[in-house]
Nucleic acid binder design. Structure first.
Length: 878
DNA sequence: CGATCCCGCCACATT
DNA sequence: AATGTGGCGGGATCG
């Protein structure tokens, strides 16, 4: 600085007066060397310029602007210099180099030089990032504005964003207090948590899309997607909401928008958010109208915010390429690992908590939408609400044409759904009384995530799984972590529909594996990852009993995880590094495509896929890129293959083979009952060992009357559509009924079925084939299958799906490993840090494809169902 | 020509 | 009513 000052200052005075040397300027500009002592030497021209200087002066005198600028320059130069040194922005440098330039600029200040980002940098340069706690710096807007030479209006833009991150807080009119970044992490964490609740699903969803697009993997998506974007607008428009005036506009946009925007990054697996997506999401929240102008405006605002965030070094601009071309996007480059998760960050910040505000703001709309009950009265929430309804309506109205839907619509729907779900969840959580237990839960994540640990107790293992799963699911779930085991829910009361019965209700979308004794050790041996899975499953079994599990999870983490982590993470990382963008692992979601699935609604197939995905995920958090899969994980190539196969309807069989290897029983043997939630928000998967998960689960198969198989009731949360796969127990051939005819009825009660109308259920009877043992895959049909009876709907779905489908089979196999509960489950957290990204990605990627398809196919439905549910709930509980 | 986004009008909020 | 805030979008610039 000194140097600069010297150089500058000395000449400056004179310079000021002088100069505008375009030629010179330009020369300088290009150079932009931040530090240019040399320049001094270069710039020997003070005197000569004098004449010019005079002129200049005149000019400046004439125009206030000029004056301001000069002022600004003077004041800021130092700042700029320092900044420049820090940040390599060419633009800024120019200014630094010579005052002349600046002046010059005055005349014709490039737009860039006046950019909000630059202004923000200057602004930030004035204050220490980490001020001493003792001293509080107050910021006078007027002062700053004048110093920086800008209208106050611009300062508001900056301050609002900073305030959203708690870097500053407003103390009085025109007065802000500078806090610095001390609490930034905490704030981010809070935002992340809030974001997960609010946007987890959405982001996942979107990201998948993006990823898919970006990576070829996603061909499928492309298929579906293409149309979507074209038309942005659509029907959403909800007229009425517009008058937001009602609520104070105050906590409306910029601030909130900024927080939301940040949340998107924090929730995003890829840490990359495209502007258009962000705009869409944000628009939804507030007002749904998606008209073009609105979108444009939103984008403009986002640019404003992005500029400030960029200046803060939290994000950087990037481009994502997708089919349509490249889209502007921003990548989060700020801290990713937030402080340990605590519950709610409440308060570190002295001043007001922005968060609260934010949360409120965010939540409000949802809440409103979902139910009449509004906690927070104020805000645009209303606007939001309306939109929601509108959207909802639409959703419901539009049964399914996911493919056709436009992105926008789709997105909005998604958003709405999410909101609804969220709400529901919240409500549920809060009020046990809620009658709709099953339907909503899906979102459990919230509770878990945020603060409620309840679930953990119940199924520790689950939790471990969950994270992964959640990720996988993508859409639904990041948030879900939740492991929230049925139990927990039950506790709450929500989920437990049938307390007395032997059913388990799982609120969250997680994968559960219940195994009674299976012996498939080999697998484990073979595949480490698998082992993990197995462990998990085992745990799950064990876990079932609430208490026990918890600890396990921790243990699990230890043993199994370590290896995994290392491997996976590394791989992932590498992958990541190579390409910033995470690969969409899952690309293959084609399952939905499979005819069967479609017939069923897509859900059927998907589930299988999911499982695989899950497995993969579990096994290796690392993203399952094609390449990665193999190398990365030893896991199980087979699985992967299966997976891929599954994905690809085309080659179902091959996958089976692999599977078979793993487990002899694939086809129908499924000893597990696996329920997968589809894409929807709420998805949860279950793996059940058909055989009996007896004790552990609490559901004794025995309990189930006709079926010896344990039943699991899955509340489909919002989505309702989740396929359930049951492998009937094994007792063998109790009933000769062929698989195909599930109809035989066992008396399984799937109360659930009712709930989730759409959800397909698969029931595989099983022979008791241990994986190893069962030599024949094809067996199922032959083997006696215990008859299960499902609700008609379910039955149908089942039939449609066909147990046979390799997909289904495959999964089970994989799962089997479980038995060993020994290993402690990986704790999400423990794992997380290391592969944080990986997890997300993996899941996401996996989830994506599936989600996508599902979404496309099912989602709508789900949505509709959900909505329906909600409505119902509103009116009358189930 | 699309991506950016400056600029400042003007509505709403606060004093 | 004056002044503070800040939504908003036209249209200039940039790439």
């Amino acid at each position: 600085e000194n140097i600069f000052d010297r150089s500058r200052m000395a000449p400056k005075t004179p310079i000021k007066n002088e100069p505008v040397d375009l030629s010179k300027q330009k020369g300088c500009t290009p150079e932009r060397n931040p530090i240019t002592p040399v320049k001094l030497t270069d710039r020997p021209q003070p005197d000569p310029w004098t004449p010019t200087a005079n002129l200049k002066i005149l000019v400046s005198a004439a125009s206030p602007d000029m004056r301001d600028r000069e002022k600004k320059k003077e004041l800021f130069r130092p700042i700029e210099n320092s900044e420049q040194s820090d940040t390599p922005d060419s633009l800024q440098y120019d200014m630094v180099d010579d005052s002349t330039v600046d002046e010059f600029e005055k005349q014709r200040p490039s737009r860039k030089q006046k950019s909000l980002g630059l202004l923000c940098q200057k602004f930030l340069a004035r204050y220490p990032s980490y001020p001493l706690s003792t001293e509080k710096t107050t910021i006078s807007l007027d002062e700053v504005a004048s110093i920086l030479g800008v209208e106050r209006r611009r300062i508001y833009d900056i301050v609002n964003v900073l305030e959203s991150l708690h870097l500053v807080s407003r103390v009085a009119k025109n007065q802000y207090c500078w806090h610095g970044r001390h609490n930034l992490r905490q704030t981010l964490k809070t935002l992340q948590e809030a974001g997960e609740l609010q946007y987890g699903e959405l982001m996942t969803f979107f990201q998948h899309k993006e990823q898919d697009l970006e990576y070829k993997f996603g061909e499928r998506k492309k298929e579906t997607i293409p149309d979507t974007q074209d038309k942005p607008l659509l029907d959403f428009s909800e007229p009425d909401c517009t008058s937001a005036s009602a609520n104070s506009r105050k906590d409306k946009s910029l601030r909130i928008m900024s927080q939301k925007f940040v949340m998107l990054f924090l929730v995003s697996k890829t840490k990359i958010v495209t502007l258009d997506i962000a705009a869409k999401i944000l628009i939804e929240e507030t007002q749904d109208t998606v008209d073009h102008s609105k979108f444009k405006t939103k984008v403009r605002r986002l640019y404003d915010i992005a500029n400030v965030l960029t200046s803060l070094g939290l994000i950087k601009k990037v481009h994502v390429t997708e089919e349509r071309g490249r889209k502007p996007a921003f990548k989060w480059i700020g801290p990713v690992e937030l402080p340990g998760k605590t519950v709610e960050p409440r308060g570190n910040n002295p001043a007001s908590d922005p968060l609260p505000r934010t949360q409120r703001g965010v939540c409000a709309p949802y809440q409103i939408c979902a139910t009449g009950k509004q906690r927070f009265t104020r805000h645009a929430s209303f606007n939001g609400s309306q939109p929601c309804e509108g959207t909802r309506r639409k959703v419901s109205s539009e049964p399914n044409s996911p493919h056709q839907e436009r992105q926008d619509e789709y997105c909005s729907k998604m958003i709405n759904l999410a909101a609804v779900c969220r709400q529901k969840i919240e409500e549920d959580t809060r009020s046990p009384s809620t009658t709709l237990p099953l339907s909503l839960l899906p979102v459990p994540g919230d509770s878990d995530f945020c603060v409620n640990p309840l679930p953990q107790a119940v199924f520790p293992m689950v939790q471990a799984d969950v994270p992964n799963l959640a990720l996988l699911n993508g859409v639904s779930s990041q948030t879900l972590h939740p492991s929230m085991p049925a139990a927990s829910k039950t506790e709450n009361g929500k989920p437990t529909l049938l307390p007395s019965q032997p059913f388990l209700c799982f609120p969250s979308p997680s994968l559960f594996m219940l195994c009674s004794g299976l012996q498939e050790n080999n697998l484990r041996e073979t595949l480490p990852t698998t082992g993990e899975v197995g462990n998990r499953s085992a745990e799950a079994q064990a876990a079932v009993p609430p208490a026990a599990c918890q600890k396990r999870s921790s243990h699990k983490c230890t043993s199994p995880s370590p290896p995994v982590d290392d491997e996976e993470p590394a791989a992932k990382k590498q992958a990541m590094e190579q390409s910033d963008v995470p690969l969409s692992l899952v690309v293959p979601k084609k399952p939905s495509e499979s005819p069967k699935a479609e017939s069923v609604l897509g859900s059927g197939c998907t589930p299988a896929v999911h499982l695989e995905a899950f497995h993969l995920d579990l096994a290796s958090p690392a993203a399952p890129e094609a390449a990665d899969k193999e190398s990365t994980k030893p896991l199980d190539p087979q699985e992967q293959e299966k997976w891929s196969q599954n994905k690809d309807p085309d080659e179902p069989s091959p996958g089976e083979e692999h599977i078979s290897k793993e487990n002899a029983n694939q086809p129908f043997l499924p000893q597990y009952l696996y329920v997968q939630p589809t894409a929807g928000l709420s998805s949860f998967n279950f793996l059940f060992s058909a055989n009996q998960a007896p004790g552990a689960i609490s559901l004794a198969a025995s309990q189930l009357p006709s079926l010896s198989v344990p039943c699991v009731v899955v509340p489909s949360a919002a989505l309702a559509s989740f396929p359930v796969v049951c492998s009937p127990t094994v007792t063998g051939p109790l009933s000769p009924v062929p698989d195909g005819s599930f109809s035989a009825a066992t008396s399984m009660n799937f109360s659930v079925s009712g709930l989730a109308s759409t959800a397909p259920v698969f029931i595989g009877t099983t022979a008791v084939v241990t994986p190893k043992i069962s030599p024949t895959p094809s067996v199922d049909p032959q083997q006696p299958h215990p008859a299960l009876h499902l609700s008609p709907v379910l039955a149908r779905s089942c039939s449609a799906l066909k147990l046979d489908s390799p997909m289904c089979m495959g999964h089970p196999v994989t799962l089997l490993k479980l038995q060993q509960p020994s290993s402690t489950p990986l704790t999400p957290k423990s794992i997380r840090p290391a592969r944080h990204e990986a997890f997300f990605k993996t899941p996401g990627s996996l989830g994506d494809p599936v989600a996508w398809k599902k979404n496309e196919g099912n989602q709508i439905r789900n949505a509709s169902s959900v909505q329906r549910r909600l409505e119902i709930s509103g009116t009358s509980p189930d």
